[in-house]
C-alpha cells in the first residue's frame, strides 16, 4: 500500500530517478556528495534508484550485445516502476549506455521482445524505452540554470580560470542522446552548459579546444599509450588556454586524467599539470560549502591544496 502511494506522489511531481552508477559510491564519492549538495541547494529533487546495477559502460557491448542492452534496461525498468519519467545520471558512460538501451528497445521489435523476456526472468517488469535519460549537467542547466546558480552564490569563484572538460559521451552520439535534435539538450559539437553555469558562479571560463576530446575511456588501463596521450593532451591544452583548474563531469574521465598524472609528470614534466575537479565541487564551493564538504581532498590531483592556495 505504502509503495503504491509513493508512486503516485512521484508521478505528480514528475519525480526524477537518480542513477548513481558504479563509481559514485566508491572512487567518485566526491562527485556524489557535491552533486547532491548542489542540487539540494537548487531545489531539484531526485530519488535514488534502489538496487540498481552496473550499466555495462562501454565494455559489455563488445562482449555481448543482448547483455549490453539488458543491464541498462533493468535500471530503466526500475526507474519506470518508481513512477519516474526521467533518469538522471552523473556519468557520461552511463548516459551513453542507458540511452543506447532506450534506442535498442524502441527501434527494434525483436530486440524489445528478447530484452523483455530476460527482464521477466530477472523479476523486473517489462520496459518500452519510455524513460528519458539525462545527464546531471543538463538537469541542473534546465531545471535551475545560470540565473538560479547566480542567486545561490555565496563565495563567487572570482579570479578562478577554469577549463571545462565535457568528454565524449555526454552528447555523443546524437542518435542515442538526442543532443542537438531535442530541446533541453546541449550542443554536441560545442557544449556550453558547464561553461555557462561556472561563469554564473563567478569563474572565468577559458576557451578550451579539448572540451570534447576523448580521455581514452574504457581503454584507460588496457591501452596505456593512448590513455596517457589523451590525458596529457587535455592538461596541455588547459595549460595553453591559461586555466588554473580543469572542471569535469564524468567520473571515468576524471579518474583517468587524475591517475595518469604521475606518469604525465614523468614523461612531460609538471608544468602542464592542473588540478582536476568535478563541476559540482566548484559549484558547491561557490554555494558556500567548505572544501571538506565537497570532498576536495578526495581528488588525486592536489585540488584541495590548490583551491586553498587560491583563497577558497
Amino acid at each position: 500500500m505504502k509503495a503504491e502511494a509513493k508512486v503516485e506522489v512521484q508521478e505528480k511531481i514528475g519525480g526524477m530517478a537518480f542513477y548513481p552508477g558504479c563509481s559514485l559510491d566508491g572512487l567518485g564519492k566526491a562527485y556524489e556528495k557535491s552533486a547532491k549538495a548542489v542540487i539540494h541547494d537548487l531545489g531539484i529533487q531526485v530519488e535514488n534508484i534502489k538496487n540498481y546495477n552496473c550499466c555495462g559502460a562501454t565494455e559489455v557491448k563488445t562482449v555481448n550485445y543482448d547483455l549490453s542492452v539488458f543491464l541498462p534496461a533493468r535500471n530503466l525498468a526500475l526507474a519506470k516502476n518508481m513512477g519516474s519519467g526521467v533518469v538522471v545520471a552523473p556519468c557520461n558512460g552511463c548516459v551513453y549506455s542507458l540511452s543506447r538501451a532506450n534506442k535498442a528497445v524502441t527501434e527494434d521489435e525483436s530486440t524489445r521482445q528478447r530484452i523483455n523476456g530476460y527482464l521477466g526472468k530477472a523479476g523486473v517488469s517489462s520496459y518500452d524505452g519510455s524513460v528519458e535519460v539525462k545527464h546531471l549537467l543538463e538537469v541542473i542547466y534546465q531545471r535551475a540554470g545560470p540565473q538560479a546558480v547566480r542567486s545561490h552564490v555565496k563565495k563567487p569563484l572570482s579570479g578562478l580560470k577554469v577549463a571545462c572538460y565535457y568528454g565524449c559521451l555526454y552528447t555523443r552520439p546524437k542518435v542515442y542522446t538526442g543532443a542537438g535534435l531535442q530541446e533541453g539538450k546541449d550542443n554536441p559539437e560545442h557544449p556550453h552548459y558547464m561553461d555557462d553555469l561556472l561563469e554564473a558562479a563567478g569563474a572565468t571560463v577559458v576557451d578550451f579546444s579539448a572540451k570534447t576530446i576523448c580521455c581514452g575511456g574504457g581503454h584507460a588501463v588496457a591501452d596505456r599509450e593512448v590513455s596517457l596521450g589523451f590525458s596529457a593532451a587535455i592538461l596541455n591544452e588547459a595549460t595553453r588556454a591559461g586555466a588554473d583548474v580543469v572542471s569535469t563531469m564524468c567520473p571515468l574521465g576524471h579518474i583517468n586524467i587524475e591517475t595518469n598524472i604521475p606518469k604525465i609528470i614523468e614523461q612531460y614534466g609538471d608544468a602542464i599539470v592542473r588540478p582536476v575537479m568535478y563541476f559540482t565541487q566548484l559549484l558547491g564551493v561557490a554555494f558556500g560549502h567548505s572544501r571538506k564538504d565537497v570532498r576536495l581532498a578526495d581528488n588525486f590531483s592536489g585540488a584541495d591544496t590548490a583551491m586553498h592556495r587560491l583563497g577558497f
Partner: peptide, 21 residues
C-alpha cells in the same frame, strides 16, 4: 589487451551487479 579487459569487466560486474573498479 582491450578484449581481455572487457571480459574481466563483465566477470567482475556479474559477481555482485556493481563494478568493483
Amino acid at each position: 589487451p582491450a578484449s581481455r579487459w572487457d571480459e574481466a569487466f563483465v566477470k567482475n560486474t556479474l559477481q555482485t551487479g556493481v563494478l568493483d573498479e
